[in-house]
Amino acid sequence: MPDQAQKTRPTGSGPSGGGEGPGSPKVDKPNTEELLKRMRKVDPDQAKRYRQRTGQ
């Protein structure tokens, strides 16, 4: 079990430092036509039946 965080010095700086780092994620718009059709079949009042007790 490690007692302390295993520290390894960075090989590059973070994005705000201008060095190597992640770029923005690829934008890949989902095809939602089928999903929108499925959504039309959802009972518009189902949230009214969703009566929950408060939990933690």
């Binding site: 965080a5 520290k7 390894t8 960075p10 992640p22």
Partner: peptide, 23 residues
């Protein structure tokens, strides 16, 4: 990033996803 990049693959993937999310 300064402390933990390069620690292990899991951390690097997480940092990559986190960084791109903030951007």
């Amino acid at each position: 990033w300064a402390e933990f990049h390069g620690r292990d693959t899991e951390t690097d993937v997480l940092l990559d996803v986190w960084g791109s999310t903030l951007k």
